[in-house]
């Protein structure tokens, strides 16, 4: 049984439908990428899965349980965490307070402090800033804090929406390196990215979303094939699915 199984998902804002056919399967411990142009509906897709955007149609099963009509605060408690686009850390709170908030979504209330210590070991830059206001961190540090904060809830599936946004190449390498380590610990991951090459270097499978439809699935080997990539990304030529 898949950890996450989404089929035929439709979602939007008010009367405006944005997502027409969202589907994805994620196995435990798997890292899946999602790419697509601006406005394709990637963030809407993740938001609908996490319960932050209302889904009007379709199925979302997580751990065999339907979560489509659940609210975000209950979904995170099932072990599905979303790091939203643009980091969304609480800039007025300290780094430590941000991490403590991440504990809210834990299923087990015991071992909370230990969870914070373990997670912060993954992000050494955060240690020295623990009691500083999070808004004073650099962009890369804020992104790491946002990921760390999601991790302290010990999710089975971590969804990241454009974690590389606004970061320098070296910092991106750091962040993606950590994703590999998180996956090694058995956590499944979905990463949304604009840059196909970046996500295909760590994801075994990468979905392409265009205009609200999942149009293609790329495998790691496809990264070498520029023509195939461009076709999938921009929708020139046949859909690959």
């Amino acid at each position: 049984m898949s950890l996450l199984n989404v089929e035929d998902l439709q979602a939007g804002y008010g009367k405006v439908q944005v997502l027409f056919n969202g589907h994805i399967k994620v196995e435990p411990g798997e890292l899946v990428g999602i790419v697509g142009p601006n406005g394709a509906g990637k963030s809407t897709f993740l938001g609908a899965i996490a319960g932050a955007v209302k889904a009007s149609h379709g199925t979302i099963e997580f751990g065999g349980e339907s979560i489509r009509s659940k609210n975000p605060e209950d979904i995170v408690r099932l072990g599905l965490a979303l790091v939203p686009e643009g980091r969304a850390i609480f800039t007025d709170l300290t780094v430590n307070e941000n991490l403590r908030l991440g504990l809210t979504g834990r299923r087990e209330k015991s071992g909370a402090q230990k969870a914070i210590e373990e997670v912060i070991d993954l992000f050494p830059v955060l240690i020295t800033h623990r009691n500083h206001q999070a808004g004073l961190l650099s962009g890369g540090q804020q992104q790491q804090l946002a990921i760390a904060r999601a991790l302290v809830s010990e999710p089975k599936l971590l969804m990241l929406d454009e974690p590389s946004l606004g970061l320098s190449p070296t910092v991106i390498q750091d962040v993606f390196g950590v994703l590999n380590r998180i996956q090694d610990q058995g956590t499944a991951i979905i990463v949304v990215e604009q840059r196909a090459h970046l996500v295909m270097s760590i994801a075994a499978r990468t979905l392409v979303i265009r205009e609200g439809h999942v149009r293609a699935t790329l495998l790691r080997e496809d990264a070498q094939d520029e023509a195939r990539l461009a076709a999938a990304y921009f929708g020139t030529g046949e859909d690959l699915e």
Binding site: E73, P84, A88, F90, G102, T104, G105
Partner: peptide, 19 residues
């Protein structure tokens, strides 16, 4: 702490599990 978080960004607070 949850009230402070919700005051600055309710949507994100809910994603973290704040009821």
């Amino acid at each position: 702490l949850q009230i402070r978080a919700a005051s600055s960004d309710f949507q994100t607070a809910r994603l973290l599990g704040v009821r």
